[in-house]
């Protein structure tokens, strides 16, 4: 167990290092001259070569790439990700931290929505295999996985915002503003989760120990939940963890559509504005979050499965 954790942390460090290189490279390998871009943006007109050279020196772009990386990564370790080129020259780290809670709020709401809808639906489908419920859940899941979120978003806006006037469609001012974006975001994950809950529960329900439970006269509810779902929870947890990553990626699109001022919108605005420090900071930040989340999933395994928990204890 301890050896496993040490190995896990070592590979984590390597991947984090890789993420930092990737983040840095994405900003510096981009075509075009960032110094000229920034100079002309601040000046508002064509820059002379001297002006660009001055800017290049100011940004440190005249130094070798390795040196630039070291100073950037050194700053990143101390929480300094540089200054954003758009956004009134705010600190990138401040921008990210300011936006993070809003995206987390959106993603968590979406995840909860997905779990609340998908797990019961998947359980019902598994329980009554080939029933109407099962087929309906299959169709719903197929549609949920196929209809793009950015299309659903507008359908929802049209129905609930424009026609029924039940919900606000843009912005971030009230809890009601959370409803449509999180439903949109939840859709894809809910679809995957429904099918996965069904298939993993079916697999568990086919196990011999489930038959043992029934043969010993346990109540079917106890068999289904205490033994069935409890054992299916391991793959379900994995998918919830993985979907969280997909949710954060989907949030980029959803935030942009609903004008939700979160990380995703920040990044997309940064991309459109070619704000390289912001893009680098965003990639490093989200990459770190994903890596840590994968670690959390692995630790959740240990919690969920005694076979893993007791590994290496000479059972």
């Amino acid at each position: 167990m301890r050896r496993y954790i040490v190995r896990r942390l070592a590979s984590l460090a390597v991947v984090l290092w890789g993420v930092s290189i990737l983040a840095f490279a994405l900003g510096s390998l981009a075509p075009g001259d960032p110094a000229r871009l920034l100079m002309e943006r601040t000046l508002g007109h064509q820059a002379t070569d001297e002006e660009v050279a001055g800017m290049r020196q100011e940004l440190g772009l005249d130094r070798p790439a390795v040196e630039q990386y070291v100073s950037w990564a050194g700053g990143a370790v101390r929480g300094d990700l540089g200054t954003s080129w758009s956004n009134r020259n705010d600190q990138v780290s401040d921008l990210l931290l300011e936006r993070l809670p809003r995206t987390v709020m959106l993603a968590v709401t979406a995840m909860l929505t997905a779990v609340i809808v998908a797990v019961p639906l998947g359980v019902a489908a598994a329980r009554r295999r080939n029933s109407v419920t099962d087929h309906a859940s299959r169709v719903a899941a197929l549609l949920g996985a196929s209809v793009p979120g950015f299309f659903v978003a507008y359908l929802l806006m049209f129905v609930f915002g424009v026609r029924l006037r039940l919900l606000p469609i843009f912005g971030f001012d009230s809890p009601q503003h959370l409803v449509l974006p999180s439903i949109t975001l939840a859709l894809g994950s809910a679809a995957i989760l429904t099918r996965l809950t069904r298939s993993s529960l079916l697999e568990v329900l086919g196990e011999d120990y489930i038959r043992v439970g029934r043969a010993m006269g346990l109540r079917s509810r106890a068999v289904l939940f205490r033994h069935g779902l409890r054992n299916a929870v391991i793959p379900i947890l994995t998918v919830i963890g993985l979907s969280f990553g997909h949710l954060l990626a989907g949030a980029v699109i959803v935030e942009w559509i609903f004008n939700w001022p979160g990380l995703g919108k920040l990044a997309l605005d940064g991309i459109h504005a070619r704000d390289y420090p912001l893009i680098q900071g965003f990639v490093l930040f989200t990459g770190t979050v994903f890596v840590l989340m994968n670690l959390a999933i692995d630790l959740a395994y240990v919690w969920a499965d005694p076979r893993v928990r007791f590994q290496g204890q000479g059972a």
Binding site: E207, A215, M216, R230, P306
Partner: peptide, 19 residues
């Protein structure tokens, strides 16, 4: 009746792995 009056054991000796 199951378990109480008539009980059954099977070929594969499997129990719920997580309990």
């Amino acid at each position: 009746i199951r378990g109480d009056r008539i009980a059954m054991i099977f070929q594969e000796p499997t129990l719920d792995p997580v309990r």
